[in-house]
């Protein structure tokens, strides 16, 4: 990993406001074992955001950024919606696409990056809302999976169109009444994780963002499997507290309720055999690394008299 990407030109560094010096000094780029625990002490993992206070999308964003295996070589593709309000604040390359087009843009981008940088692994990650992923963009989403495009699709599932005031979405639960969908939804929540599995995704995970370590693991696996094998999909429940009438502090409880037994968001994963093999290899490698580090530490310890 390379931290040089976010260093300052020495000749002009002294005119830069303090926050940029701090951004560089606390950056986790290049840090071995970076992860969600760096949130709060590293400026690049979004200090400010422009979402509603307490919106779970904001913490989901942070967990995702902290979990990227190679942030300096990652490009996000976003789409219109509440998520797009955060992209101007992140220290990772990103492209905004026309609403619904995100997986088509990502397909072209990934292929182009492969040609342009044949010797560097460039990860492409789509991050869009449920309206963009499942309704207006479903064609592009699924076609990219059929074609086995090698990138990760992350959907922030808040079960409605939040940014435009609460319209019905395919991922909304049956019977739900939203501000701009007063008649109530009359069909079931679309089962996109199952569709993703059938459409060729090698790794599919659906979970809430209540537990950072789970999110970190799912994102890491999704990105690595997309890099090595083929398309992956992660659906994260990020409830729109504004639309469901919750206070800023209540997002976490809402997610915990939704993931408890019998809830809509009990964590599930679908993993292809090929992807499972890769996960096993990665875990074995990680274990070996930890063991070696432990032994090295032991060897260094002075023998007490």
């Amino acid at each position: 990993m390379n931290k040089d990407k976010i260093t300052l030109c020495e000749e002009l560094a002294d005119i830069m406001p303090p926050e940029y010096h701090e951004l560089v000094e606390t950056a986790t780029y290049g840090k071995e074992g970076r992860g969600w625990k760096d949130i709060g002490s590293s400026k690049e993992l979004i200090e400010q955001h422009s979402l509603c206070a307490g919106c779970p999308e904001s913490i989901a964003f942070r967990y995702i950024l902290a979990s990227l295996p190679a942030p300096e070589n990652t490009v996000f593709v976003g789409s219109t919606g509440c998520t797009s309000l955060v992209f101007p604040h992140v220290a990772v390359q990103n492209i905004h696409s026309l609403f619904g087009n995100q997986n088509a843009i990502a397909s072209g981008l990934k292929r182009t990056l492969k040609r342009r940088f044949p010797d560097v692994e460039k990860d492409v990650v789509v991050l869009a809302g449920d309206g963009a992923t499942v309704d207006i963009g479903l064609d592009m989403t699924m076609q990219s999976w059929f074609r086995q495009e090698k990138f990760t699709t992350i959907c922030f599932d808040n079960e409605l169109y939040a940014n435009t005031g609460g319209q019905e979405s395919g991922l909304m639960q049956k019977g739900f009444v939203a501000k701009m969908a007063p008649a109530g939804k009359n069909f079931d929540k679309v089962r996109l994780p199952e569709i993703a599995r059938e459409a060729g995704c090698h790794y599919v995970a659906m979970l809430t963002v209540s537990k950072p370590n789970r999110v970190e693991k799912a994102i890491r696996q999704a990105v690595m499997i997309a890099r090595e094998i083929g398309p992956t999909y992660v659906q994260l429940y990020t409830p729109c507290i504004l639309e469901i009438g919750k206070q800023s502090m209540e997002g976490l409880d809402e997610m915990k309720d939704a993931e408890s037994i019998g809830g809509r968001f009990v964590m599930k994963e679908y993993i292809s055999d090929q992807a499972q093999q890769l996960i096993d290899d990665m875990e074995a490698e990680e274990k070996a690394k930890k063991k070696a580090a432990k032994e090295a530490k032991k060897a260094k310890k002075p023998v007490s008299a």
């Binding site: 040089d4 260093t7 300052l8 030109c9 020495e10 000749e11 002009l12 005119i15 830069m16």
Partner: peptide, 22 residues
Amino acid sequence: FPGPLVLWNWNENATKKAKAIR
């Protein structure tokens, strides 16, 4: 008003431009 392309050390030329601007 120097912008990001000359403030951030993203390639060798950026450093040279920063020097010339100073």
